[in-house]
Design a protein around this nucleic acid. Structure first.
Lengths: 331, 331
DNA sequence: CGCCCTTATGCTCGCGCTGAGCGGAAGCTA
DNA sequence: TAGCTTCCGCTCAGCGCGAGCATAAGGGCG
């Protein structure tokens, strides 16, 4: 039998449940973060303890404390990943139980998206400025990140290591032939982390600097507590992938919406502009929505028809979602 | 601040690392399982303890004990899911620390796939007979499972619950309009579990019966220890999805292989037959392989050219993988 | 030695999805 | 009523992909 427990290895750890609570409001993607307590600390993901005695399942535990603490009843919840790297919590390095965090993504409707005390809705792209391609390829990619990553590549030991680093950059950031793959959020963040280009690298396990508050974050993005930005990167990548084959986008929409509102929400999370007419056609062809009969006159021009989600679609299509191109070329 | 730790809830748990070690040998998908110790027990996933003192990361811990215990150095490793439902381990229900298991999938090359002592390679489709569509739609779907699930549907309380159950069946098993979605392995297993159609349901937390050894498993599939079959279902679904956009299939291939061998390996995991000529065209078009110049005369007919994986493909294509149709209709 | 069987491999055809654009419809404002 | 804005119906071309036909290149056997 393979399983064995040498004495001293079946040690206890403390499990933590972290929640990436996301929504789209005013056509902008938002995530709920707990404010920093003081100038030396950073915003963090809302998280709560897992109660092995009370909670039947971990997801139940997550829903419980999110409801308790934020008053939000989340609908869609999905487990993301379990984070347990040693470095993630400098405090436990000194001893004490190892901190393991099970990350979840949750989507919540705009209308229910009140701001709980002590928390704020942050724009996703404040954390990941290079991920927002809605107005075309972000300038900071070529003007700032590419040269900075270039220095990191040059800093590698031998030629082989240099080539490996360059390959990683090309794949993650879509330089060279590969197009930009919007789903590779985590790969990009991890590369920037390794290259020392995000504030978390510097402070990880070392002295935390005041430089955090500087506006250098315009291009490195807002740093978060511990590895919470890594968890967010995982979440964004997962969401972007999921939109394509599951109708999760409707979790953030109001009951009735115009097709343009729906498109803006998809664009907000996908971080890419979509062709308007084709979007309409695809949404209709997939049978994702049905007309409510009402119209919205708030658009300025011709009133837009209001639609609602058509839940039956899951019984008709194997993978209903918003079809989108995966890769995009340089521009 | 949202995070708080009421006394008594930051309780310790024991973390376990479980590995789904998969390969393809002789055109059949295999998974490594630890043999049952006696007739009352069941095969189980190889698993090992997570050592919070020794292991820097959980993946490192996994690799360490897999190497220690099985002598296998696995290449591709990916974290799957963290399983923590209360029912999963009847033993800890009576007290003691809650058992949490972090599941991983690993792929290993056929040639390295020796059989470690105490373990055996099991055919995936012994565990999930309804998942193998390589020779067309499995007969047991319509002849056995559909009527059995039908009884479960009829057993629901009111009409609304009946409709909900029927909807779930239609989606998961591709009855009605929806085609069969090969990726929904977990959904199908969970439905069968809830419907009481797999042996695990019966024995979960109750008296374990000798009936486990009966050949009724021809259609319910071989039951495993605790929730290990659920973990395997998660793994198979994940692998099937991943093949389509990451070149993971090459992790189970020998260095040089014919295109038909490659196709058989994909079919084995995907559980679906593929059109030969189109498969060749797609693999070539994606640039996944390159000719070695050698040929294999073991095929009986015209010798087949031997190919090797072309790693550069990841630098050229945003999502290189074996393109396959997602849904398939009734036949 | 040539016929036949088997498997590999190249090529073609046609449908449907998808990207991209044009133009009309329907509201508002001045 | 003209002009602006946004919504929405429609068309067209390219090509990805499913499916089949034809040919190549081996081995076995009479």
């Amino acid at each position: 039998m393979i399983k064995k427990s040498p004495p001293g290895s079946a040690q206890a750890v403390v499990l933590d449940l972290g929640a990436v609570i996301a929504t789209v409001a005013s056509d902008e993607p938002r995530v709920l973060l707990v404010n920093a307590k003081d100038t030396d600390s950073r915003p963090r993901l809302p998280s709560g303890p897992f109660d092995p005695e009370g909670d039947r399942t971990m997801e139940e535990g997550l829903r419980r404390w999110v409801a308790e603490q934020t008053g939000l009843a989340v609908g869609f919840v999905e487990q993301l990943y379990t984070f347990g790297d040693r470095f993630r919590d400098p405090d436990t390095r000194a001893g004490g139980p190892r901190s393991i965090s099970v990350g979840y993504v949750a989507l919540i409707r705009q209308s229910a998206a009140k701001r709980p005390a002590g928390s704020d809705w942050f724009d996703w792209y404040r954390l990941f400025p290079w991920e927002d391609w809605r107005n075309g390829r972000p300038a900071l990619l070529d003007e700032i990140l590419k040269p900075k990553i270039g220095s990191w590549i040059d800093g590698a030991g031998d030629a082989k290591a240099k080539r490996a680093r360059r390959g990683r950059m090309d794949v993650a950031f879509g330089f060279s032939d590969v197009g930009w793959d919007a789903d590779r959020v985590l790969e990009r963040y991890e590369l920037l982390y390794e290259a020392g280009l995000v504030a978390e690298t510097v402070t990880d396990g070392r002295i935390r600097t005041r430089q955090d508050q500087s506006d250098a974050h315009a291009w490195t993005g807002l740093p978060l507590h511990q590895d919470h930005r890594r968890i967010l990167a995982t979440a964004l990548g997962r969401l972007r992938g999921k939109i394509r084959y599951r109708p999760v986008i409707f979790e953030v929409m109001p009951i009735a919406f115009t097709l343009l509102q729906l498109q803006r929400a998809v664009e907000a999370l996908a971080g890419a502009p979509l062709h308007k007419q084709n979007f309409r056609r695809l949404v209709a062809a997939e049978g994702l929505v049905e007309p409510t009969g009402r119209v919205s006159s708030e658009t300025g021009g011709r009133p837009a028809e209001l639609f609602r989600f058509r839940p039956d679609v899951v019984r008709e299509r194997p993978a209903p979602g918003v079809r989108m191109p995966r890769g995009r070329r340089t521009k």
